[in-house]
Computed example of a mutant assay.
Amino acid sequence: MSWSKLKKELESFLCPALIGRVEYRATSYRYLLDKSGICYIAVDKKNVLNMSDINNSIRWYQTEQEIKNDPNIQIPISNEEIEAVRKDTKGTVPEDRLIVIARSRKISVLAKELLTAQASLSKSNFVVVATKFLSTSIEESLESNDILLNILALVDRRVGKKRILNMAEKMKLKHPIVQYFYELRLSTL
């Protein structure tokens, strides 16, 4: 599919409040056959997501420790996770320490997922992921670990107000760029 056709199709799925604010842009290299060009997403004429550039205004993590030490990441801990820690430690750990251990375990898993998703995004081809988005269900795109699929689904008009509001807890565990687009969509409700 040509870039102009793909762009037109993606923009036809934009939420009405974001039409004109969110743009899909691409640059190409005319004389370099092996270079497919760079695709990026702009919000209010500002380049927000460029897959090959880690110097965006959105926070890109370099290590697992950066994620663990980020005060903006809030990790909700369930009673089942606390019980699992209690079972693993055979009840010898004080109650307040169980929460700390459960949070630490959960954030380690989250950190690995975030770094994996971020690494795959920097290597991904926007056109391939966008074509996949157009052929998969909106639910599958929202539940995916692929950052770009999440973003395309969040700005989609098929995702209603109720679903957006019910995603608040899930969004806390997503990459900052996904959270940015979630907040953008929330601002249009």
Rank of each mutant, 00 (worst) to 15 (best):
K35R: 11
N125H: 14
L114D: 09
E81V: 06
I101Q: 02
R97T: 13
G37T: 02
A119C: 09
R103T: 09
D88K: 05
D70P: 03
A84L: 01
A119S: 14
A117P: 12
S137D: 09
N145A: 15
S124K: 00
Q74I: 07
V129W: 00
Y31I: 03
A130F: 00
E80Q: 12
V109A: 11
E80D: 12
S78Y: 11
T131D: 04
Q118F: 06
S120W: 02
I82S: 00
N55I: 03
E95F: 08
L142R: 07
I82W: 00
N50P: 02
A111H: 05
F133L: 11
L98A: 05
D146A: 03
I75Q: 07
Q62K: 10
S141Y: 03
I54S: 15
N69W: 06
S124P: 01
Q65W: 12
A117H: 12
D88V: 02
S52M: 13
S78N: 15
S122D: 08
V85C: 05
D146E: 06
V129I: 07
F133N: 07
V109W: 01
G37H: 00
I38C: 09
L149A: 12
S108M: 04
D53F: 01
V127Y: 02
V129N: 00
N69C: 15
W60M: 09
I38Q: 09
N55Y: 05
N145F: 09
K46A: 11
K45Q: 12
S135I: 07
I58V: 12
E81Q: 10
N50D: 13
N79T: 07
I38V: 14
P76L: 02
T27N: 10
Q118P: 10
E23Y: 06
L149T: 08
L98K: 03
E83W: 03
R105T: 08
N55D: 10
S36L: 14
R30H: 14
S28L: 11
R105W: 01
N72E: 13
F133W: 02
E23C: 13
Q65F: 15
L115Q: 11
I147E: 05
F126N: 00
N47P: 01
E81K: 06
S141P: 05
Q65Y: 13
T27D: 09
Y29P: 04
I147F: 02
A119H: 11
S108N: 12
S52F: 10
L121T: 10
I77A: 06
L154A: 04
L152P: 04
R59S: 13
T27P: 02
I101G: 02
L149F: 05
I54G: 14
D70T: 07
M51F: 02
S108G: 09
K45E: 07
Y24W: 08
A130P: 01
I41V: 04
D44C: 04
K35P: 03
A117L: 12
